Simulated assay, not measured.
Amino acid sequence: MITLGNVSRLLAGIVAIATVFGALLADFLIPAGAAQHLRNDAWPPHAKFHDAQYIVMSLLLGVIALILLVRRGGDRFPTLGSACAILAVPWLALLGALLFPGTAIQDPEFDNPSPLGLHPQVLLSLTLLALLLAAVLLTARKQPGTARSGFGE
Score class of each variant (00 low, 15 high):
residue 86 I to K: 00
residue 106 Q to M: 09
residue 7 V to Q: 03
residue 40 N to S: 13
residue 58 S to P: 06
residue 72 R to E: 10
residue 133 L to T: 13
residue 117 G to I: 09
residue 128 L to I: 11
residue 134 A to K: 01
residue 31 P to A: 09
residue 30 I to H: 06
residue 149 S to A: 15
residue 111 D to V: 15
residue 60 L to K: 07
residue 118 L to W: 06
residue 146 T to Q: 07
residue 32 A to P: 08
residue 73 G to A: 08
residue 96 G to F: 05
residue 32 A to R: 10
residue 126 L to V: 15
residue 153 E to D: 11
residue 61 L to Y: 00
residue 153 E to P: 10
residue 20 V to G: 05
residue 71 R to C: 01
residue 22 G to R: 01
residue 82 S to H: 02
residue 9 R to T: 14
residue 26 A to S: 14
residue 70 V to W: 05
residue 17 I to Y: 02
residue 59 L to I: 08
residue 111 D to Q: 14
residue 117 G to F: 06
residue 55 I to E: 04
residue 88 A to L: 02
residue 132 L to W: 03
residue 17 I to A: 09
residue 89 V to Q: 07
residue 122 V to I: 12
residue 62 G to E: 05
residue 7 V to G: 00
residue 145 G to L: 04
residue 63 V to W: 03
residue 136 V to Y: 05
residue 47 A to V: 14
residue 72 R to A: 10
residue 43 W to Q: 09
residue 3 T to F: 02
residue 7 V to R: 04
residue 7 V to H: 02
residue 101 P to S: 14
residue 114 S to A: 08
residue 38 L to A: 10
residue 81 G to T: 06
residue 94 L to E: 01
residue 101 P to C: 13
residue 58 S to R: 03
residue 83 A to W: 00
residue 82 S to T: 15
residue 46 H to F: 12
residue 44 P to W: 05
residue 126 L to Q: 06
residue 9 R to D: 03
residue 111 D to C: 11
residue 55 I to Y: 02
residue 147 A to Y: 03
residue 116 L to H: 11
residue 111 D to K: 10
residue 85 A to I: 10
residue 115 P to Q: 11
residue 41 D to V: 11
residue 37 H to T: 10
residue 115 P to F: 02
residue 45 P to L: 09
residue 126 L to R: 04
residue 111 D to E: 15
residue 116 L to C: 12
residue 147 A to M: 03
residue 76 R to I: 00
residue 122 V to K: 01
residue 113 P to T: 12
residue 86 I to L: 12
residue 14 I to R: 00
residue 105 I to M: 09
residue 6 N to H: 07
residue 121 Q to C: 12
residue 15 V to T: 06
residue 49 F to I: 12
residue 59 L to R: 08
residue 9 R to P: 06
residue 62 G to S: 01
residue 105 I to W: 00
residue 152 G to T: 13
residue 52 A to Y: 07
residue 151 F to A: 13
residue 41 D to M: 07
residue 21 F to T: 14
